[in-house]
Design a protein around this nucleic acid. Structure first.
Length: 206
DNA sequence: TAGGCCATCTGGTCCT
DNA sequence: AGGACCAGATGGCCTA
């Protein structure tokens, strides 16, 4: 929570812009549809009520009335306050639901850009796996970028590779060992279709 | 059947 | 006051 609050305004804006692209996006696969499906047991509060809007909320208010037959001095509709509270609660619930759907849309967007097998036969990444994989992917990209920078610097120092070039990272002239290129071909065991260098399970192995 | 994952509800807190 | 965010609780679904 503190982390969220500490995000600089500009960063938050840029995040929000990309976030808005996925907001209410039309791309909702089968998995997403499953995620949005309302559990049968929650139908009372969610699906039927949200679809019919306010009228259904009033119906729940009437339920409250029957349970609470008291009448105030002003002759107001019995349980009106209860009904208002119920209505407020339902609107808060709907807002929270929408927020979580937006969060899931963002996670889907994240899944779509990190390298793992996106075929239907492969199980969708869990939320935690998505975040961990994304973090490792970012770290790996940063490492690769740094390595490329060092290579460019090295080449700019006047060294010419006159001899036949060995595959990247295995050159006898280039002093830095290519870790990323070598590792990325290995497959992860925890997340099928993913390279092991992205997976904490694999990278943590001794 | 236990455990993992998920969606939803709910009450609390903070911010505008 | 209303909205956003968060965390805990709860129950459903799926898989090993």
């Amino acid at each position: 929570m503190a982390d969220m609050k500490s995000v600089p305004g500009d960063a938050y804006l840029s995040l929000a812009q990309s976030y808005g692209q996925t907001l209410y996006g039309a791309l909702r696969g089968a998995d997403t549809a499953r995620s949005f499906a309302v559990p049968p047991g929650l139908d009372f509060n969610v699906s039927s009520r949200d679809k019919s809007g306010e009228s259904s909320e009033e119906q729940s208010g009437e339920d409250e009335d029957s349970a609470e037959p008291g009448r105030d001095n002003e002759g107001k509709v019995p349980g009106r306050k209860v009904r208002e509270q119920r209505s407020l609660r339902l609107s808060i619930n709907a807002r929270e639901r929408r927020r979580m759907h937006d969060l899931n849309d963002a996670l889907d967007g994240l899944r779509s850009v990190i390298p793992y097998a996106h075929s239907p036969s492969v199980r969708k990444l869990s939320k935690i796996a998505t975040l961990l994989l994304a973090k490792n992917y970012i770290l790996m990209q940063a490492q690769a970028l740094e390595e490329m920078r060092r290579l460019v610097t090295y080449l700019n120092q006047g060294q010419t590779l006159t001899t036949s070039l060995a595959p990247f990272g295995q050159s006898s002239v280039y002093p830095y060992t290519g870790t990323t290129a070598a590792v990325t071909s290995e497959k992860c065991t925890a997340f099928p279709g993913t390279t092991s260098s992205l997976c904490k399970h694999c990278t943590d192995k001794p």
